[in-house]
């Protein structure tokens, strides 16, 4: 057997049925759906102050300058996580290692760095009108659209776990969780959703 016969399995695959049960049970009553999104190739990009514009060219992906902003790219997302830090994803990249290998020298030339962090996050999606309230049970950010609208992303705490929270155009919340905390966050979400059952 060779490695390419292995099918990717979501880190939280064991939780999938419970999220589906929840979504079915709440349908029409509370409008909440929690789904698992396949993980994508992702690079952590660190850029020296003032070099974002040149790094953007070397990377071939826009790097949003506004704090806590993200932009869709041709094949993924570009998220501004900190003053010198971005997370760039690519749904089409078959090998993150190869992507890193071509990106790294191009970025090094402009004083920036890229690291393959594809295995770092599990990706969950929360949809429906109750999604914002559910998250606010364990997250201190003001998640109302006026302050946390579409194209906004923030690393913060959900319960006891650090998460990367990403707002989408259609009111959907994307939750990127460190792999070692994914089980905790899955359990936390189901527990918080007991409120609606």
């Amino acid at each position: 057997m060779t490695a390419d016969l292995l099918a990717p399995v979501h880190l939280l695959d064991a939780w999938r049925a419970r999220f589906e049960d929840l979504t079915v049970e709440l349908a029409g009553r509370h409008d909440l759906a929690i789904t698992l999104a396949p993980s994508t190739a992702a690079l952590a990009v660190r850029v020296a102050p003032g070099a974002a514009a040149v790094a953007e060219v070397a990377l071939g992906v826009p790097l949003p300058t506004r704090p806590l902003a993200w932009e869709p790219t041709l094949r993924g997302q570009s998220l501004h996580l900190g003053p010198d830090e971005w997370l760039v994803t690519d749904v089409a990249a078959t090998s993150a290692a190869a992507w890193e290998a071509v990106t790294r020298p191009a970025l090094a030339a402009v004083g920036a760095a890229a690291s393959d962090v594809s295995a770092q996050y599990a990706d969950l999606r929360l949809q429906g009108r109750a999604a914002r309230e559910l998250l606010s049970f364990g997250c201190a950010l003001d998640l109302r659209p006026a302050s946390f609208g579409p194209r906004t992303c923030a690393r913060t705490l959900l319960g006891q776990s650090g998460v990367l929270l990403v707002g989408h155009d259609d009111g959907e919340f994307q939750l990127l969780v460190r792999t070692s905390f994914a089980g905790y966050v899955a359990a936390w979400l189901l527990d918080a959703a007991e409120e609606y059952r």
Binding site: L81, P83, D84, E85, R155, G162
Partner: peptide, 10 residues
């Protein structure tokens, strides 16, 4: 000095 460890990590 303060470190925003759970946010922007600066």
């Amino acid at each position: 000095r303060w470190f925003h460890s759970a946010g922007c990590r600066t």
